[in-house]
């Protein structure tokens, strides 16, 4: 009897979760599309690495976290920042380098920070932030907390020493860290198999006596479930996990890289687009009769409006004052 009453409730929770994730993924997609436009118009400078195609990873994994958990990422972090709750306005303003940006215009696309949301930054050196995640995990254990630290990086970071040092120490010290490798198959223009002797990233977990899981990164619910298991391990006994989330970026490495470049074929990109994580989640919700076309259109209109607002806000926001050049070099 208990299960009969509990069952629909669980389903309902699952549907609400899926709908929430779909909204987040749509928000990322529309945000990134607008960022690309703004970049082309010269409103955004420097490097700008888009997350289009990888939305299910941010939405799925972050749904498994509590608000007091920590998140840290690489330079392809717009999506994770948005899902974590950095307002689209503050994120877009940061891309524009404005004073109202989440890093006051001093960080830019690669360095979105929101300490209040425990979003501990986008970091620009491949793999360099992975030891920081271990350090945050160390602080959690030191303080006797039961939070976790979720760390995103690309598969290219697996070839760098920092990754190995950080995983080894997270395991040796039993730290609550989830290492989430977003394997989008290319480090800039270099296919992973051309430069990695071991191409299944999960295999590296064996070297560090660490739990690991291979996850379909185009399926937000699968990412959620795997992250939830990792969070459980971390909270219970301070056991770190290596997740290899197989995904794909539909855009170039950065805005200066054409859509498919010379290192992959247009056909390959088109083939991958058939696995579009948003299309898949929409199809699932429609199959479950939890969403219809009108509902989807309304959701999309809502996030488009949110992104339009963010662009307007960024456009109209002031640049940092010249005096800001010299603030925050040192803490007073």
């Amino acid at each position: 009897m208990t299960s009969a009453t509990a069952q629909p409730k669980a389903d309902q929770t699952q549907v609400e979760l899926a709908r929430r994730m779909l909204r987040q993924m749509l928000l990322i997609r529309r945000f990134e599309e607008k960022a690309a436009e703004a970049y082309a118009l010269g409103k955004i400078g420097g490097f700008c690495h888009l997350y289009i195609g990888q939305e299910a990873v941010a939405a799925g994994s972050l749904a498994a976290l509590r608000l007091d958990d920590y998140v840290i990422s690489s330079y392809r972090e717009h999506g994770q920042a948005l899902v974590r709750g950095v307002p689209a306005k503050a994120a877009m303003a940061e891309l524009y380098g404005k004073a109202t940006g989440c890093s006051k215009g001093k960080g830019g696309s690669m360095h979105l920070f929101d300490a209040a949301k425990r979003f501990m930054g986008g970091h620009g050196i491949v793999g360099g932030h992975v030891p920081l995640a271990t350090g945050i995990g160390f602080a959690i254990k030191y303080q006797g907390g039961d939070q976790v630290c979720l760390c995103y990086f690309g598969e290219a970071a697996v070839n760098i020493g920092a990754f190995h040092e950080a995983l080894n120490m997270a395991s040796v010290y039993h730290l609550p860290v989830i290492f989430c490798c977003e394997n989008n198959r290319y480090g800039m223009g270099t296919a992973f198999e051309r430069v990695a002797a071991v191409t299944d990233v999960v295999e590296h977990a064996c070297s560090y006596d660490m739990a690991a899981e291979l996850v379909n990164g185009m399926d937000a619910l699968a990412v959620y479930a795997a992250t939830q298991r990792a969070v459980e391990r971390a909270r219970q006994g301070g056991h770190p996990t290596l997740l290899e989330v197989r995904t794909y970026r539909f855009m170039g490495h950065s805005m200066s890289d054409p859509l498919h470049g010379v290192y992959r074929t247009k056909d390959e990109v088109e083939e991958q687009k058939k696995r579009d994580p948003i299309t898949q989640l929409v199809a699932k919700l429609k199959d479950d009769a939890a969403l219809d076309q009108a509902g989807l259109d309304a959701l999309d209109a809502e996030v488009r409006a949110e992104v339009e607002d963010a662009v307007k806000f960024a456009d109209e926001s002031p640049d940092p004052e010249p005096a800001e050049l010299f603030t925050h070099v040192l803490s007073d």
Binding site: P131, L132, M169
Partner: peptide
């Protein structure tokens, strides 16, 4: 008082991460 492996980059980074989280 934490002994580390010989991994300067790693434990320097752990220090920075720990400082980010309040230590």
């Amino acid at each position: 008082v934490v002994d580390t492996p010989i991994a300067e980059l790693g434990f320097a980074g752990i220090g920075v991460g720990a400082a980010m989280a309040g230590l």
